[in-house]
Simulated assay, not measured.
Amino acid sequence: MYNLLSQISAVLSKPFFNMANSLESWPIVFALILGLVGALAPCQLTGNISAVTLYGNRSIQRKIAWKDVTYFTLGKVVAFSLLGILVWMLGRGFEQNLPLYFPWLRKIMGPLLIFVGLFMLGIIKLKGSFNLLKLSKEYKHESPFSSFMLGLSFSLAFCPTMFVLFFVTLMPVVLASPYGFILPPTFALGTAIPLLVVIFVIWYLGGSGVIMKKGRKLGMVIQRMAGVLMLLLGIFDTVTYWSL
């Protein structure tokens, strides 16, 4: 199943990877396009589809989730920036040992998506102040911390493709460039491009809160459909990465 996901990823990312290689003399553009390639890596594909489903659903049901998307992207920026700093400080020995830890971090993502899917379906209910992905009626009270942590955790879902893109392809350019510290956060922004494009299209087409205007029942149907998709993605992700 992982091989199938890798083949799909290769087809989607090949044009962007070729573009990135042709732009290596412009490090910032190179890092941005390489991040877009990373967004299509096998280990990032299901996570990015999940983020699009989650924040797209919020935007259509209530209002454009710019704040949530911003904190989600910020989580990505922090994750990749910290990884870049660690490699720079600790050197190649640390870089070579990182693959020992990432597979376990990657395996957490599938169960997390299953949990979110069950929550959106109303099967799991949370009480108290904990609201990791709480879809409450009072949208304005949602904590941006949950979106930040989601972006952070999704960014640590590394696989061989993502490892090569970030550590083998990007980091040498980071270390050789006088403004290399900008490149890891630029790479992070590239990984968020698919989500940003979808939310922008919803905003541009005037889709903000369209479901709320047409009734809560339809909104609940959309939420349930999003929950089913998240659940299926979580099951697919778990089966794929727990079997490796």
Rank of each mutant, 00 (worst) to 15 (best):
S25G: 02
W26I: 12
F30Y: 15
A31R: 00
L32G: 06
I33M: 09
L34R: 03
G35T: 10
L36P: 02
L36G: 11
L36S: 06
G38T: 04
A39Y: 01
A41C: 09
Q44W: 06
T46N: 15
A51V: 14
T53F: 01
L54P: 02
Y55A: 08
Y55R: 06
Y55M: 15
G56S: 08
G56F: 02
G56L: 02
N57H: 14
N57M: 15
R58H: 10
Q61V: 11
R62F: 12
K63N: 13
I64K: 02
I64V: 15
W66M: 12
D68F: 10
V69A: 15
V69M: 14
Y71M: 15
Y71S: 12
F72Y: 15
L74D: 11
K76Q: 14
V77A: 10
V78Q: 02
A79T: 08
A79R: 02
A79W: 05
F80K: 01
F80E: 09
S81M: 13
S81G: 12
S81H: 04
L83T: 06
G84S: 10
G84Q: 07
L86Y: 10
M89H: 04
L90A: 10
L90D: 03
G91T: 04
G91E: 07
R92I: 10
R92D: 12
G93F: 01
N97S: 13
N97G: 10
N97K: 12
L98Q: 03
Y101M: 13
F102C: 07
F102Y: 14
L105F: 14
R106V: 09
R106S: 13
K107I: 05
K107R: 10
I108H: 03
G110F: 01
L112Y: 07
L113R: 08
L113P: 07
I114R: 07
M120R: 02
I123A: 09
I123Q: 05
I123V: 14
I124V: 15
K125T: 13
K125C: 05
K125P: 05
L126T: 14
L126N: 11
K127L: 05
S129D: 09
F130V: 13
N131V: 00
L133C: 06
L133E: 00
L133I: 13
K134L: 07
S136R: 05
S136P: 00
S136M: 03
K137F: 03
E138A: 06
Y139S: 07
Y139K: 02
Y139A: 08
K140F: 07
K140P: 00
H141Q: 08
S143Q: 06
S143K: 06
P144F: 00
S146W: 05
S147G: 12
M149G: 09
M149I: 15
G151T: 10
S153I: 15
S155G: 10
S155Y: 01
T161H: 02
T161L: 12
